Simulated assay, not measured.
Amino acid sequence: MFTIEHDFDATVITLIDEGHEGLVDDVTINAFEDCVTLEQLDPLTGEPVRVTLSMAQLRDLAAALDLPEGSYRIDRKPA
């Protein structure tokens, strides 16, 4: 299950783990103009852990989901 909310400066997506044993805490994804952050509570400390991806890293991640094992470089056309 997931939710989508549009805030002033970001789109917030929350991924909710459900329906099986070994559930993990929700993941919150904040999509800003220049980066995307992923946050999840650390079960040991109860503190949020944040990972920040640049837009280039996010594009590479999206491309990587459909590629076989290997090393790749995506050439970008100048804007």
Rank of each mutant, 00 (worst) to 15 (best):
L67W: 09
A62W: 09
P48C: 02
R76K: 10
Q57R: 09
Q57I: 00
F32P: 12
D17N: 07
L61Y: 13
M55Y: 10
G70K: 07
P43G: 05
N30T: 15
L67N: 08
E39Q: 14
V49E: 15
T45P: 03
T52S: 06
S71E: 15
R50K: 13
T37W: 03
L41Q: 04
A63K: 08
M55S: 10
D17C: 05
E69M: 07
I29P: 00
T14N: 01
M1N: 09
G46H: 05
D66K: 09
A64N: 04
Y72K: 06
V24Y: 13
L41A: 10
D17I: 01
M1G: 15
F32N: 14
L15F: 14
I4S: 07
H6N: 12
E5M: 07
A10L: 00
L65R: 06
T45W: 00
L15K: 05
V12G: 04
V27Q: 02
L44H: 13
I74K: 03
V27L: 10
A64F: 00
L15M: 10
E69W: 02
A10W: 07
V49Q: 15
I74C: 04
L44N: 15
D66G: 13
V51S: 06
N30H: 10
R59N: 08
D34K: 13
Y72W: 03
V27R: 01
T14K: 08
S71P: 00
T14W: 06
G46I: 02
M55P: 01
Q57C: 01
S54R: 08
P43F: 06
G70H: 06
E18C: 08
